[in-house]
Lab assay of single mutants.
Amino acid sequence: MDVFMKGLSKAKEGVVAAAEKTKQGVAEAAGKTKEGVLYVGSKTKEGVVHGVATVAEKTKEQVTNVGGAVVTGVTAVAQKTVEGAGSIAAATGFVKKDQLGKNEEGAPQEGILEDMPVDPDNEAYEMPSEEGYQDYEPEA
Rank of each mutant, 00 (worst) to 15 (best):
M1G: 00
M1I: 00
D2F: 05
V3E: 01
F4Q: 00
F4I: 08
M5G: 01
M5F: 01
M5K: 12
M5Y: 04
M5W: 06
K6N: 12
K6F: 04
K6D: 03
G7A: 02
G7W: 07
L8H: 00
L8E: 00
L8Q: 00
L8F: 03
L8D: 00
L8Y: 01
S9A: 04
S9I: 13
S9G: 10
A11S: 02
A11R: 00
A11C: 07
A11E: 00
K12A: 09
K12N: 01
K12W: 13
K12D: 00
K12R: 10
K12E: 00
E13Y: 06
E13L: 01
E13N: 14
E13P: 00
E13V: 03
G14Y: 15
G14Q: 14
G14V: 12
V15W: 04
V15K: 00
V15D: 00
V15H: 00
V15C: 05
V16C: 09
A17H: 11
A19V: 14
E20M: 12
E20W: 06
K21E: 00
T22C: 14
K23E: 00
K23F: 09
K23I: 02
G25E: 12
G25F: 12
V26H: 00
V26Q: 00
V26G: 01
A27V: 05
A27N: 10
A27E: 02
A27H: 06
E28Y: 08
A29N: 01
A30I: 13
A30Y: 12
A30N: 00
A30L: 10
G31N: 07
G31M: 13
G31C: 01
G31Y: 13
G31K: 13
G31L: 11
K32T: 02
K32F: 14
K32V: 05
K32H: 15
K32W: 13
T33A: 06
T33M: 15
T33Q: 01
K34D: 00
K34P: 00
E35S: 06
E35R: 09
E35F: 09
G36Y: 03
G36H: 15
G36F: 07
G36P: 01
V37A: 04
V37I: 12
V37E: 00
L38E: 05
L38F: 11
L38Q: 10
Y39T: 12
Y39R: 09
Y39S: 07
Y39G: 03
V40P: 00
V40I: 13
V40Q: 00
V40R: 01
G41H: 14
G41K: 02
S42N: 15
S42L: 12
K43D: 00
T44R: 02
T44C: 11
T44L: 11
K45C: 13
K45Q: 03
E46A: 13
E46P: 02
E46S: 15
G47R: 09
V48C: 04
V48R: 01
V48N: 00
V49I: 08
V49N: 03
H50N: 06
G51V: 11
G51D: 01
G51A: 06
A53Q: 14
A53V: 09
A53N: 07
T54G: 13
T54A: 09
T54C: 13
V55Q: 01
V55H: 01
V55K: 05
A56M: 13
A56K: 14
A56R: 11
E57K: 11
K58D: 01
K58R: 14
K58V: 13
K58F: 13
T59G: 08
K60R: 04
K60G: 05
K60E: 01
K60A: 02
E61S: 06
E61V: 06
E61D: 08
E61P: 04
E61T: 07
E61L: 09
Q62P: 01
Q62V: 03
Q62C: 14
Q62I: 13
V63E: 01
T64V: 12
N65D: 05
N65Y: 11
V66H: 09
V66C: 08
V66L: 11
V66E: 01
G67I: 11
G67E: 03
G67V: 09
G68K: 09
G68Y: 00
A69S: 09
A69I: 04
A69E: 03
A69G: 07
V71M: 14
V71R: 06
V71E: 03
V71K: 04
V71S: 08
V71C: 06
T72N: 13
T72H: 09
T72V: 11
T72W: 12
T72P: 02
G73T: 14
V74R: 01
V74C: 14
V74W: 15
V74L: 15
T75E: 06
T75Q: 13
T75P: 02
A76Q: 07
A76I: 07
V77D: 02
V77S: 02
V77C: 11
V77E: 03
A78T: 09
A78W: 13
A78P: 02
A78M: 13
Q79V: 11
Q79D: 05
Q79W: 05
K80E: 02
K80P: 02
K80D: 05
T81A: 11
T81H: 08
V82W: 11
V82L: 13
V82Q: 05
E83W: 14
E83I: 13
E83V: 10
G84T: 10
G84W: 13
G84K: 11
G84N: 12
A85C: 06
A85D: 05
A85R: 09
A85I: 11
A85K: 02
A85P: 04
G86E: 07
G86S: 09
G86V: 15
S87D: 07
S87W: 15
I88N: 02
I88P: 11
A89Q: 08
A89H: 08
A89G: 10
A89C: 05
A90Y: 10
A90G: 02
A90P: 09
A91H: 13
T92S: 13
T92E: 04
G93F: 07
F94I: 07
F94S: 05
K96P: 05
K97H: 14
K97A: 15
K97N: 11
K97S: 08
K97Y: 11
K97L: 14
K97C: 15
D98G: 09
D98E: 13
Q99N: 15
Q99H: 05
Q99E: 05
Q99I: 12
L100I: 09
L100R: 04
N103E: 10
E104H: 09
E104N: 15
E105F: 08
G106M: 05
G106C: 10
A107S: 13
A107R: 05
A107Y: 04
P108H: 13
P108W: 08
P108D: 14
Q109T: 06
Q109F: 07
Q109E: 12
Q109S: 09
Q109K: 15
Q109C: 11
E110Q: 04
E110L: 10
I112Y: 05
I112C: 05
I112R: 11
L113E: 12
L113Y: 09
L113C: 04
L113T: 07
E114P: 06
D115W: 06
D115Q: 07
M116Y: 09
V118S: 12
D119W: 02
P120I: 10
P120T: 12
P120D: 06
D121H: 13
D121I: 15
D121E: 14
D121A: 14
N122R: 15
N122H: 06
N122L: 03
N122I: 10
N122G: 02
E123W: 10
E123N: 12
E123K: 08
E123P: 15
E123Q: 06
A124F: 13
A124G: 14
A124Y: 15
A124M: 11
Y125H: 09
Y125S: 08
Y125R: 09
Y125A: 02
Y125M: 03
M127Y: 12
M127G: 03
M127A: 03
M127S: 04
P128Y: 11
P128Q: 07
P128E: 04
P128N: 13
P128W: 05
S129K: 06
S129V: 10
S129M: 11
S129C: 09
S129Y: 12
E130D: 10
E131C: 09
Y133H: 13
Y133A: 11
Y133E: 07
Y133I: 03
Y133N: 14
Q134P: 15
D135G: 07
D135T: 12
Y136I: 12
Y136D: 01
Y136S: 13
Y136P: 14
E137Y: 10
E137N: 07
E137D: 07
E137K: 06
P138R: 09
P138A: 09
P138Q: 05
P138M: 07
E139H: 08
A140H: 06
A140C: 15
